[in-house]
Computed example of a mutant assay.
Amino acid sequence: MHHITTIEGVLDASGLKFTIIASRFNDFIVERLVGGAVDYLLRHGAARQDLTLIRVPGAFELPLVARAVAQRGGVDAIVCVGAVIRGATPHFDYVCAEATKGIAHVSLETGMPIGFGLLTTDSLEQAIERAGSKAGNKGAEAAAAALETVRVLRGLEGVSA
């Protein structure tokens, strides 16, 4: 059996700076996502002073602000959180698609790890479930993905192609 080089992200947030970008729309849900992200990062070694929270009007504004943060530098990863609920958003499909594509594009364009914590649900009940009750907390999951991605990218730096 040949040795396989494995690069994995150690879930250690100490010494890293994170910016959480949160949409105001459906704020009572988004607050739980922000709480989940902050709690996750603190429990994994991040210092409170290394976390910044930015609030934007809605999901549609997440990519633009994420791009500005990534281009400014001084941050290791971004966590985007928001909640788009079909019943509450007339242009639901458009907002979800544009926010999702936009965030992915910013990450690829800038090389910035971005945790994707945007809930897109059919109902308020589903949003509540994914913001900390039955189905876990999408904010914490997004923070975990951002942290692991930072560490994977750092692990690649020392590996020859």
Rank of each mutant, 00 (worst) to 15 (best):
Met1Lys: 15
His2Gly: 13
Thr5Pro: 11
Thr6Asp: 07
Gly9Glu: 02
Gly9Ala: 03
Ser14Glu: 09
Leu16Tyr: 03
Ala22His: 13
Ser23Ile: 07
Arg24Leu: 13
Asn26Ala: 07
Asp27Gln: 15
Ile29His: 02
Glu31Phe: 13
Glu31Asp: 15
Arg32Tyr: 11
Leu33Cys: 11
Gly35Tyr: 11
Gly36Ala: 05
Ala37Ile: 01
Ala37Glu: 00
Gly45Phe: 05
Ala46Gln: 04
Gln49Thr: 14
Asp50His: 11
Asp50Pro: 09
Leu51Met: 06
Thr52Gln: 06
Ile54Gly: 00
Gly58Pro: 00
Ala59Phe: 08
Ala59Met: 08
Phe60Thr: 07
Pro63Thr: 07
Val65Gln: 13
Ala66Leu: 09
Arg67Leu: 14
Ala70Lys: 08
Ala70Pro: 04
Gln71Asn: 03
Asp76Pro: 12
Ala83Cys: 10
Val84Asp: 07
Ile85Arg: 12
Val95Met: 08
Glu98Ser: 15
Ala99His: 08
Gly102Gln: 02
Ala104Gly: 05
Ala104Lys: 09
His105Ala: 15
Thr110Val: 12
Thr110Gly: 09
Thr110Trp: 09
Gly115Arg: 02
Phe116Gly: 03
Phe116Glu: 00
Thr121Val: 13
Asp122Ile: 12
Glu125Gly: 14
Ile128Asn: 10
Lys134Asn: 06
Lys138Ala: 01
Ala140Thr: 06
Ala142Ser: 07
Ala143Glu: 04
Glu148Val: 00
Thr149His: 12
Val150Tyr: 04
Val150Met: 04
Arg151Lys: 15
Gly155Asp: 01
Leu156Phe: 15
Gly158Glu: 03
Gly158Trp: 01
